[in-house]
Design a protein around this nucleic acid. Sequence first.
DNA 1: CATGAATGAGGCTTCATTCAT
DNA 2: CATGAATGAAGCCTCATTCAT
Lengths: 222, 222, 222, 222
Amino acid sequence: MSTSPAPAPAEPGPSRRRRKEARPQELLDAALDLFVEKGFAATKMDDVAARAGVSKGTVYLYFPSKEELLKAVIRHNLTLTISQVDDLVDQFEGSTADLMRLAAATWWEQVGATQASGIFKLIITEVRNFPDLAAFYAQEVIEPGERLLVRLLQRGVDRGEFRTTPNPLDTAHSLIFPLLMLCLHKHSIGACPSADAIVHDPRRFIDNHLDLMLQGLLARTA
Amino acid sequence: MSTSPAPAPAEPGPSRRRRKEARPQELLDAALDLFVEKGFAATKMDDVAARAGVSKGTVYLYFPSKEELLKAVIRHNLTLTISQVDDLVDQFEGSTADLMRLAAATWWEQVGATQASGIFKLIITEVRNFPDLAAFYAQEVIEPGERLLVRLLQRGVDRGEFRTTPNPLDTAHSLIFPLLMLCLHKHSIGACPSADAIVHDPRRFIDNHLDLMLQGLLARTA
Amino acid sequence: MSTSPAPAPAEPGPSRRRRKEARPQELLDAALDLFVEKGFAATKMDDVAARAGVSKGTVYLYFPSKEELLKAVIRHNLTLTISQVDDLVDQFEGSTADLMRLAAATWWEQVGATQASGIFKLIITEVRNFPDLAAFYAQEVIEPGERLLVRLLQRGVDRGEFRTTPNPLDTAHSLIFPLLMLCLHKHSIGACPSADAIVHDPRRFIDNHLDLMLQGLLARTA
Amino acid sequence: MSTSPAPAPAEPGPSRRRRKEARPQELLDAALDLFVEKGFAATKMDDVAARAGVSKGTVYLYFPSKEELLKAVIRHNLTLTISQVDDLVDQFEGSTADLMRLAAATWWEQVGATQASGIFKLIITEVRNFPDLAAFYAQEVIEPGERLLVRLLQRGVDRGEFRTTPNPLDTAHSLIFPLLMLCLHKHSIGACPSADAIVHDPRRFIDNHLDLMLQGLLARTA
DNA sequence: CATGAATGAGGCTTCATTCAT
DNA sequence: CATGAATGAAGCCTCATTCAT
């Protein structure tokens, strides 16, 4: 986009400096793509560099090793997501069913539909090779995520919309697991041309899933 | 199944012979474990050999290359599972809810709770590096699996137990995805000691999930 | 020498095994040569392998890293030298002057004139990059060597052959330093064809040096 | 010598100017230190720049390559030393023993005790990798040095102070080698904290060495 | 059949050198 | 002049694969 030769040298001189500032982000994006696509071990630093449009050595100006690059990729893609939905739950005033639909849509737009959705595959793939990640991910994603979902369910119960379920955490997992599978699918089988996409329309699937779950959760008035 | 003692006890001794006959199976098991744990690229042939209790060269007596070993592992772990449940659906005579609970329990016992459950992580991890797998997996697992689940749902509808859902395939995915996530979790975060197990009791989770789904599916008599 | 294709396969089968047992020594010799010639940092593992007649990877079957190879080279070339001269001093019965000449000749034959003489250059060159070596060398070589030399001088004094010197350790260094310089020279300037050899005859130099020193040490009867 | 304050105080300020003029010297000093400490191959241009307090690119403004920097370092540290002692020999009127003591003390002060003493280690370390150095060093240092020492010995013989020795060059080496070893030691084992200094007092050692040698050289009147 | 020594292509990483600012 | 971001050749080390025993 901005890599075309600058037509006017009149500008203060951003070309080199601007690149420098953008590099880490470009490298993180390139690395995320490749780590998700091929796995950490099968990704070559050369490939990361090439995809970011730099030479091999440049990557090492920004990240001291392949492993640190991985950690930076994960750190970079795990922040800020849950807190937004957290705020949503606080402020929303409609029915819990609507809130859940809104939260799911938000999440899908910001995470599921973006490059960041690959992070789930990456975690599942690499967590056993880099055990540090486990604690980090549990603390940064799983725990806040579970708290959020349980809070959401409790809201429904408190407002008389949902029945109680024997184990709210299990129920939370029933809600969220299919969405995570959507992400995993998108970056595995779903990315292979040979296998025709199994889930054709993620948004429709999410609606259907929430409908099913909400039916199962509704307080039966009868 | 085929490891039963050799019928003729006249031979010099069964132990060495049995080993030879068991080798491929032992190698496949070792390879599955390691491929699932570390990923294909990060697994060394040395490790596979060591875990199977043989020397490195021996692996090549049975599998011509690492990639062929991977394919053999996948092929070996994908067969026979669905057909069993298929038969179940044909023969079962009780309610579809009970059938689903039985099918899920059977699947969990034969797949989810065993080493073979790792195959799902392996597929997700490696399918993009070995695109052949995609078609193979789609044909051998996804399509029969989806057919089975849709048939199951249809049975419920036909018998007046379930309401119809706008997209039965989506519904099938809502049913099965959480179970697959259980397998993935078990072989990723769930295997890390640092992160306390998130899903503590798979069987209870499956019950809860089916209850929720069934509530959502039941034909409302009201 | 023995790498020609074996004409008679009748032998028990030494070719492969014998190589395996000789490898470490061959590699240590090759590494000593190259480390001494080019320095540790400038020596490539490929070069070591090539000089030992094996491929790159083979070196790593015997030494886990370049640094460990260096340590092994040093360890291997520092043992057994001083103890021999130590025994000599114990058993010799002639004049201390003769004993010193014999000791020097022995040392020159076993160390100075051999490949092992390079170890002194190697130590001087690399000790600051690998500080572990300092303590090791001080303990294994310097301390026993100094003790030996001081004992030798004391023998001369005790027998009324030598005068006392204000600082025997200094005197010991005056004795030994020129011999060490001989080794250093041999592996530096002395190895360059462009500079005509400065010390033409090491044995003659050693004789001359000892004569000078002994003249300086003799008890003056006057 | 040339770092005296700029004659014209009218200019904006001497500090920046002086730095520019001092740069080459600062770089040579930094490079000498590092080449001596770590060896040529293990020294990074970054380190040289950092020690001289400039950025990496700046080094290349003054020296076109790392190898040229090495040559400049050596050239710079080899000049001017011997000619001073040469003059001393011409002008001195006392005993040759005293002259030798004076010459040794002068040399120690101007070379041995300074940073320049490292040059001997550097030559020994690198001469085989840069054969040009051999001829240069032989011509600039060894030959004048040997001529000087032989002249010194001849002076003693001519004045009836010393006996003749069978090979004056060997004797010259016996005189000078221990002093060179002092320099080498100082920049190798002597610089390692782990090994307690072996030669504790260089000046005392030099005195002792000369006393020994002079005793060995004295014309015996008896 | 089984072994494990040997190979060498390939990947991560370093660092001398260049050059736009 | 000085900077430091960028480059890419080169070196250490790994590991899939081969093959003599």
